[in-house]
Design a protein around this nucleic acid. Sequence first.
DNA 1: CCGTTGACCCTTC
DNA 2: AGAAGGGCCAACG
Length: 109
Amino acid sequence: MEPTFPQKIYHLVSRIPLGNVSTYGQLSLLAGSPRAARIVGAALANAPAGLPCHRVLYRDGSLCCDQAFGGKEIQRKLLEQEGVPFLPDGRVDLKRCLWQPDESPWDSL
DNA sequence: CCGTTGACCCTTC
DNA sequence: AGAAGGGCCAACG
């Protein structure tokens, strides 16, 4: 039996290494649907606690809505705490911190 | 089974 | 360069 989409998202987000960040499009791509970035957001909305959802940003490196996981301020603080450098524009440098899965994220499956 | 919704992304003005 | 609109895919009622 195949896991549901949100289930894959949880696994992927849980796989994001510390000091790195990911985007909804990246997760959707790894999940198997490059255009299902919205589903990723919906999945994270229903995601249980324990997932580093604060490491998931927009395609531009900007943070998501304020209601997400508690507030943008919290997210920025958490990312800085993880060692993610922030640009003066208030965005994260995806070129330096974007999660780059060398091996198949499903190696554990 | 069909319609609606959603923590997005991309194209165009 | 910035802002607005539409499209896409899957889960839920």
